[in-house]
């Protein structure tokens, strides 16, 4: 055996994204990104918005086989515009052989995606930019220690909503579909089959394409890293995270949970997370728990009625 130091394999276990990044143990965002990247293959130009995933590329390392551009918190989609346009100009001018082209993927957390990044993203949709927007939604400003964001759900405790969020999660998916994009889908790393189908579908479509990934965050949501998959599956099963797909102007739910009464109660999902502990101790807060449950039930009643 050679005694020379071994370089870590750039694609362990056949993954596009190399191991050894500095994300937290049990990071649901990284799980989703890895699954998506594997299906997209290596020719990807990631344009990153400020967020947890900024720390994937730390000099002199990168876990990506493709290109990476860190832009800012507000303008990653505009960075995607510049990259896509430049590639198109070079392709049209035969300065770039077709096999050298890359898919442009904007990588953004929910804080950027639903807040200061909206203007740039909306603009990219207006212009029908051919890109994928991958939002890892951990429902708060995770990279700074979990503060309240527009995507924080009702009742969740963050470091800036210590008695629980009085507001409601902003519907980024609806904001996207109001723009009539080429494609939009919600996904979760804990549902790889559903995720795979969606990413395969989106690969065959041009234009603005959203992948909104629920990304359970052990550090911020306060649960054991081993429970990331459990949390993701439960969020889908209890109906809190609807898996859906928008294409050709139609909305389809790709995995409908069991009927009311037969599916898990949201309480099961909430109880596993420290960010909801104040709803159960020292006194149980039935008002908020049942409000969360009722909103989920109403959502699915409406889906069934319309379906």
């Amino acid at each position: 055996m050679s005694s020379a130091p071994q370089k870590p394999s750039s694609q362990p276990l056949g993954h596009q994204l190399a191991a050894g990044t500095s994300t937290c143990a049990g990071c649901g965002a990284l799980q989703g990104i890895r699954l998506v990247h594997d299906i997209l293959d290596s020719k990807v130009f990631f344009v990153n918005a400020a967020g947890c995933m900024t720390l994937l590329s730390i000099y002199p390392f990168t876990p990506f086989a493709g290109a990476w551009l860190y832009t800012s918190m507000a303008s990653a989609a505009a960075g995607g515009q510049g990259v896509r346009d430049a590639l198109d100009i070079m392709l049209a001018g035969k300065r770039l052989p077709p096999q050298e082209d890359m898919q442009v993927v904007v990588l953004s957390g929910d804080g950027s995606a639903g807040g200061m990044g909206l203007s740039a993203t909306s603009g990219a949709m207006d212009r029908n930019l051919d890109f994928i927007y991958l939002c890892y939604d951990n429902e708060g400003y995770g990279n700074t220690g979990y503060q309240l964001s527009a995507a924080t759900p009702h009742g969740a405790r963050t470091t800036t909503s210590t008695s629980g969020n009085p507001g409601y999660k902003k519907e980024l998916f609806d904001i996207w579909t109001a723009h009539k994009p080429a494609y939009a889908a919600t996904i979760c790393g804990a549902e790889p089959g559903d995720l795979r189908k969606k990413v395969e579908t989106l690969k065959g479509i041009k234009g603005p394409r959203l992948l909104l990934a629920l990304s359970p965050c052990p550090t911020a949501w306060h649960f054991e890293p081993a429970d990331t998959i459990t949390l993701g599956k439960l969020a889908v099963a209890c109906g809190l995270w609807p898996l859906k797909e928008y294409k050709e102007g139609r909305l389809v739910h790709t995995k409908v949970p069991k009927k009311t009464g037969r599916r898990p109660q949201v309480e099961e999902y909430l109880r596993l997370q420290g960010r909801y502990r104040h709803l159960f101790a020292p006194r149980r807060n039935d008002r908020v728990i049942s409000e969360i449950q009722n909103r989920v039930d109403r959502y699915w009643e409406k889906v069934t009625d319309e379906g």
């Binding site: 990259v83 203007s119 740039a120 603009g123």
Partner: peptide, 16 residues
């Protein structure tokens, strides 16, 4: 949509 986006797109295209 803004100068912030404009300068980002310009820099990204120039980088590419």
């Amino acid at each position: 949509d803004s100068e912030h986006s404009m300068i980002t797109a310009a820099g990204a295209a120039a980088a590419t």
